[in-house]
């Protein structure tokens, strides 16, 4: 049932690979629909204006802010949220595991959105530099990590290194960037 008053519309779409058929209010935002009507916890609300990125989901192959999208726009779309990342028995995927190993999350509130943006980035650019990673997650605000370990975790997932190798590679990249 649609929570918001006003006109409603029947919508059908694919959510994390499963078909969804629902009635949505015309004025309802996609993030509210996903959270309040479908009970998802992944997309978070942090700003209401499309800036913080906590609500980021993948919509027909591109990342969008689900607070800037109406629920009825989901009609016919394929939508993926962070809930799609872990394996069938709940095991973390490589990106999630890299976030865990590299302490790329603290409070965890921005994490769903950051993961979705990172995944999208790596699909387009499998071996990004640190600078490219920073640009790729520019639409996601994190207040806990200073982004340092997020960049590191994405880079590690992309390049498959860890520990000292990872640190040395990232330091090399950094010094190439800063003083040219």
């Amino acid at each position: 049932m649609a929570n918001a008053p006003g006109p409603v519309q029947d919508i059908e779409f694919t959510l994390n690979g499963d078909p969804v058929s629902r009635t949505a209010s015309s004025r309802q935002l996609l993030v509210h629909f996903l959270r309040d009507d479908l009970g998802l916890r992944g997309p978070k609300i942090g700003c209401d204006t499309g800036h913080c990125g906590a609500c980021t989901v993948n919509y027909n192959g591109k990342v969008i802010k689900s607070c800037m999208t109406l629920a009825v726009q989901a009609d016919g779309a394929e939508i993926e949220t962070v809930e799609s990342l872990a394996g069938e028995s709940g095991e973390l995927d490589d990106l999630q595991e890299s976030f865990r190993e590299n302490h790329a999350l603290q409070c965890g509130y921005c994490t769903s959105g950051v993961l979705m943006s990172s995944k999208f980035l790596l699909e387009r650019n499998p071996k990004p530099t640190a600078e490219e990673i920073r640009e790729g997650i520019q639409g996601n605000i994190c207040r806990c990590t200073g982004y340092v370990n997020i960049v590191k975790a994405i880079s590690a997932a992309a390049h498959g290194d860890k520990g000292l190798d990872l640190i040395e590679r990232m330091n090399r990249e950094h010094s190439q960037e800063v003083r040219g």
Partner: peptide, 21 residues
């Protein structure tokens, strides 16, 4: 020791519980 955090798995999988959840 730099142990990975107990909290992380639930937060990475959107199984944490924030107030609006």
């Amino acid at each position: 020791q730099s142990l990975p955090r107990k909290e992380d798995e639930r937060l990475l999988k959107a199984q944490g519980s924030f107030v609006d959840d």
